[in-house]
Design a protein around this nucleic acid. Sequence first.
DNA 1: CTCCGCAATTTGTAGGATGACCGGGTGACC
DNA 2: GGTCACCCGGTCATCCTACAAATTGCGGAG
Lengths: 237, 237
Amino acid sequence: MTPELRAADRRSLVDTVVEQLRNQLAERAWRVGDRIPTEHELADRLGVGRNTVREAVRVLVHAGLLESRQGQGTFVRSTADPSAVLRGMKQANVRDVLELRIALETEAARLAATRRTRDDLRRLRAGLRALHQHGPQPEGAVQADDDIDFHLAVVAAAHNTALTEVYGYFSSSVREALVASLGQDGMPRLDLETHTALVDAIESGDPQAAETAARNLLMSPLRAVEALIPHDTDTRP
Amino acid sequence: MTPELRAADRRSLVDTVVEQLRNQLAERAWRVGDRIPTEHELADRLGVGRNTVREAVRVLVHAGLLESRQGQGTFVRSTADPSAVLRGMKQANVRDVLELRIALETEAARLAATRRTRDDLRRLRAGLRALHQHGPQPEGAVQADDDIDFHLAVVAAAHNTALTEVYGYFSSSVREALVASLGQDGMPRLDLETHTALVDAIESGDPQAAETAARNLLMSPLRAVEALIPHDTDTRP
DNA sequence: CTCCGCAATTTGTAGGATGACCGGGTGACC
DNA sequence: GGTCACCCGGTCATCCTACAAATTGCGGAG
């Protein structure tokens, strides 16, 4: 008797198989280095087609949990899913993630003040021009992309790979969340003067000034979010 | 040992397709909410079978980037790619990750100054006592754990789940990297006065003082690392 | 005009065919 | 006896056809 797979009708068969495979790893039924059953055997045992098994296995291979070797089989590479940390991050509220982004970008601005190259400054100035060009128009989407590009340029000028990667992830995720929760109308107006001040501070090479300018720049979306999401009740001393 | 012979690049077709799709998202050729071409059209355009496309799409669906709806098509759900973050993190050196940690903790200290509860302060004071107790002894490992606990308490006092999660993820890896690269001898001596100053600043409720105190606290390991790892050559203007 | 139902489109699943690759076994050759 | 080319079964990689299921949109009946 094949195990009942149709318990959750709304989910695809592949998702069900992915979960079953994950459970095998979580329950230590399959250890690191073990060879898991062949596609054909898994398909037989789960009562699904080989294509379904292949798609599920491919997902876990790409997640770093499994490793397929042609001609040999599929082996367990790791039982800990590192992407789970970042996946759980999506459950944090918008304010928390926005504050996290502020933490990253203020430090990035500080570092950029001492490390920016001529190319960095060129990119920052170009970003300012793009903002100025699209600024007066109500084209929210275009302006939002220009804004993202500008902030990415700031972080890139810090010349820190880890910072750039992590910021890039939360930047787009925050933007999507902001647009979703506030809508284009609720988005705070871009302040060109503040943006320019940040670039000037970075160019002048003053870390403290750059950090302050970055903080000023990032406070307005934070305040917009805080207007919607009240502070937690557990912040009383 | 004999020189390592590296196998020729043997990337699977599916991996290639995954990368192509990812590029479309990274370059914003496909925006959030867009419908991407049908499986058949992608297979046609990429010159691969529909099964190959399906496996690649399934990977991105599971990564949260795409969303497939039967009968309608496949849509862009998000452009924030967590696995790209982890991939880039492997290339980052210790200094970069340490600076990232500084970015998180200075902001955490700033937030903690306004949000710390009585329990937070209790935990911070307890952390100080633990450091003081083990401080004079040369038990590097124990002291390092106490140090980590202390810094985790600081971040927890900020009451920001996103910050806490990300900081926790990097803090352990930073400690491992520090011990590995510096060794116990190279680890800077813990400065109890600076630690105490940070707690005092958080208790007094002064965000700027807390940030400054946190930065003072974190600069010494950074300088120790920078002594070993020279700045990149690409930081000259 | 509304409502029902059918056709078209698209993803979901099944299973087969073929090829590439790996490991081990076999046997010829030195 | 040792070495090595070759074959064979097992496994994954890719492609294919076929059909199922879900959704949309259109067109005709009422």
